[in-house]
Nucleic acid binder design. Structure first.
Lengths: 134, 134
DNA sequence: CGGTATACTAACAAAAATGTAGGTACTTCC
DNA sequence: GGAAGTACCTACATTTTTGTTAGTATACCG
């Protein structure tokens, strides 16, 4: 009986993820973490807990809607922790969970590499491709 | 004259990127690398050169259109190299440039972490959030 | 000779992401 | 007292992304 299917393990046979498989849950997680704002939220929260408005000010360009949505998603995935104090002018604090800290380490490595190598990346090729710029 | 603006350096004063700034070019690069298919293409090409149809078969779920678009973008950014042999049934080979190899290392670290920790991520929380699942 | 494969592009359509505006309930600052 | 700040949500509008279908020129397989 060593090859039982254990049927429930992870909703499916994904005891180990495979992002190249379209229906593997790992792909959804990857999308959340690498979404336009998800990455930036992770990077920012890695520097310490932030309040909603505070995040919004640091991450230039996010709308309230997108920030809220992104935070909820990351919270659902277990990467960020939301702590709300029930006071009258609302006070909510967002921070990374232990799992979030691990994940953040990787996205930070990527963003840091990009930031540090921007000159190399922008310089040579990339002749201002007309429509691919955006 | 040590503080000249050198006006062109990087289209702007971005000698070092800052993804938190909305108009910093690093943010666009980040988007390309972390786009839905961009990440998967990088991961796949990191295992060696691939032809178009080959990539399409390995990355489950991409449409031809998206794959072509993604490849062009990554090529413009200087991460992938496209080599076309002008033969009648077209033969094109895609591979990572040295810059691409460096970038790929980071996205691979992230995807590998996710794949390896899927049980931890899916297990506890994430009670199948109704609409955030997708 | 008909079907399949290659590497795409163009045109059109549908779906998903994102932005905007307005509202809430109450407090602090000027 | 009026303005601004807090942390959001809801509805609506727009933008972006993604998918679908068809087409190209030619060669190989049976």
């Amino acid at each position: 009986m060593t090859l039982s299917k254990t049927a429930h393990d992870l909703v499916d046979h994904w005891d180990r993820g495979n992002v190249l498989a379209a229906d593997c849950p790992s792909r959804a997680i990857l999308q959340h973490l690498t979404s336009k704002w998800g990455t930036l939220v992770m990077v920012t929260l890695a520097t310490g807990p932030h309040r909603f408005a505070q995040l919004r000010r640091r991450i230039t360009g996010v709308s309230e809607r997108m920030l809220a949505q992104t935070l909820q998603q990351l919270e659902a995935d277990g990467f960020v922790l939301r702590v709300a104090r029930d006071v009258v002018p609302p006070h909510v604090s967002y921070s990374l969970t232990p799992l979030g800290v691990e994940a953040a380490a990787h996205v930070i490595a990527l963003t840091a590499w990009i930031e540090g190598n921007l000159p190399r990346i922008c310089a040579p090729q990339a002749p201002v491709a007309p429509e691919l710029t955006a």
